[in-house]
């Protein structure tokens, strides 16, 4: 960030960091599949990025650099023997990282698209999403609430996810 004062550099850096929060969360969450852990790892990543901010140079892309550091943090988290077992081991983190980064790159426009798609969802389908993702209910609990079989709930959720993915894809092509 040549040609800028220290303060300006810091401001630009903070701006970039703030803008990357959603994508960092998306990346880390995809790797860990756990909200609370993902929050922790994103915070750790933020601290590392902050400490290393001198290493970040003007003109360089911020996101690849930030994601690379987030990946190290995820790996550290996964490897840490004192922690409980994560689904992904370090080998799988490495295998999935590239695809995840590609997806997460589009995260901000995906969020807008998802919002639009959720807005147009019929009430009973939206309720299903709410039960699962907002209220974090298990499949068995949802089955009980909607008075249906677990299998039917799973099938419904899978269909819903697919149709939302199609809707988002469509929206993103439009814009």
């Amino acid at each position: 960030m040549a040609g800028m004062s220290d303060q300006e550099q810091t401001e630009v850096f903070v701006q970039l960091l703030a803008e990357s929060q959603g994508r960092l969360f998306g990346y880390v969450y995809s790797m860990l599949g756990d909200h609370a852990r993902a929050m922790d790892v994103v915070q750790e990543t933020n601290l590392v990025l902050w400490r290393k901010k001198a290493e970040f140079r003007a003109g360089a892309a911020f996101m690849p650099w930030a994601v690379a550091i987030a990946r190290f943090q995820v790996l550290a988290h996964v490897r840490d023997q004192s922690r409980e077992r994560c689904l992904l081991d370090s080998e799988l983190v490495a295998a999935l990282s590239e695809e995840t980064e590609k997806q997460v790159d589009k995260l901000d426009s995906m969020r807008v698209a998802l919002r639009q798609c959720l807005d147009n969802l019929p009430t009973e389908k939206l309720e299903m999403i709410q039960l699962r993702y907002y209220r974090s209910m298990s499949i068995a609990e949802i089955a009980q609430v909607v008075g249906s079989q677990s299998t039917a709930v799973k099938v419904a959720l899978l269909r819903l996810r697919r149709s939302l993915a199609e809707c988002m894809h469509h929206r993103m092509l439009e814009s």
Partner: peptide, 16 residues
């Protein structure tokens, strides 16, 4: 498939 699933879950939770 796994990545798409996870990214979707992340998105919905961010929305929440």
């Amino acid at each position: 498939r796994y990545v798409q699933r996870q990214v979707f879950a992340a998105l919905v939770q961010m929305d929440r």
